[in-house]
Nucleic acid binder design. Sequence first.
DNA 1: AATTCGTGGTT
DNA 2: TAACCAAGAAT
Length: 384
Amino acid sequence: MSENADFVPLLLDWFAQNRRDLPWRRTYDPYGVWVSEIMAQQTQLDRVAVYFERFMARFPSVAALASADETEVLKAWEGLGYYSRARNLLAAARRVMAEHDGRLPADFAALRALPGVGDYTAGAVAAIAHGQDHVAVDANVLRVLARVCDIDAPIKEPAGKAQATSLARELLPPGRARDYGEALMEFGALLCRPRNPDCPACPLAEHCAARRLNIVADRPVLSKSKDITPLNVATGVLVHAGRIFIQKRLPKGAWANLWEFPGGRIEAGETPEQAVVREFAEETGFATRVETKLAVIRHGYTTYRVTLHCCLLRLTDVPETAPLPEPTLTAAQESLWAAPDELSRYAFPAGHRKLIEQFGESLRGRASGGWGPEAPRPPTRRKG
DNA sequence: AATTCGTGGTT
DNA sequence: TAACCAAGAAT
């Protein structure tokens, strides 16, 4: 362990030279640090910055956030993923108003008790916002310590995490928790990267056990990866009397409380057109037919790789002048018929948002009744 | 302990 | 391109 004893000053020097200029590093006000840490979970910082600035402009304080509608908070989160983070952040803000007089607590245990705040985030806020001697062990820290200190347990499993966390605490220079925590993470993100770490430029090279043993490629030890299931899904954009049918998803599960176009899995032996008509009937009670196929959108998420077949639907045997019908919802908590321009107000999953962006013009045209059978085609973009 | 929960960038 | 992965938390 002695070879690790004094790499921390070198790490702090490196950070002083390579620290990125990020918006929440301007004042380190606790609310901003908290928001940034929630946004940063499982998300790369460069992608967070834009969302952060927009979020802070709209919800500049705990009080402003606490008094907001969830719909608006989810809209601000649209595209970031893991939407329970946004719902928990709002719930936590309301609890801070009720229980902490509107000021984010500084105490680790009080932070840790807020919804959406785990060990990492509580430590990060305590250290980065308040300068308390706590560690924030994220995936960067796990990787850096696995290499520098040669941790041979699978680093994402409890034993590996425990070793890394213990080391991180031992190495923490008292009074410098903010710089130390940010430095470990920044170092992992910029230099000691997962794939191609820049060992030749590494200021810790002489202290790195993995490098000395020539096993950098074997650290950290990874767990078995899980296979990704391909999934075919059909979704329908139902247009009637100038409006588009959307529904608000249930309050639990994937994309909770976000809006969507109804649809679902394409079963074996089904065409996308058959599936979307069936799903629409199951979820809304509406009898529909496919007018055109709008797009095939591919998007992946952690355990699935989805191919989304998007169809434009019309009500069957209902004249365009008939009033907007009421659905019988089975897979949603609420629904509405939106004017095309209103779709931008609601938070949609990324795949559905892509659909709206690609076909917004076409949908506007169709909704206003001005389109014949040959609607404008999207630019077909095929590689190779 | 193992799953679930998104999305986009990188290699 | 397919696989991997990111300033994790909740269940």
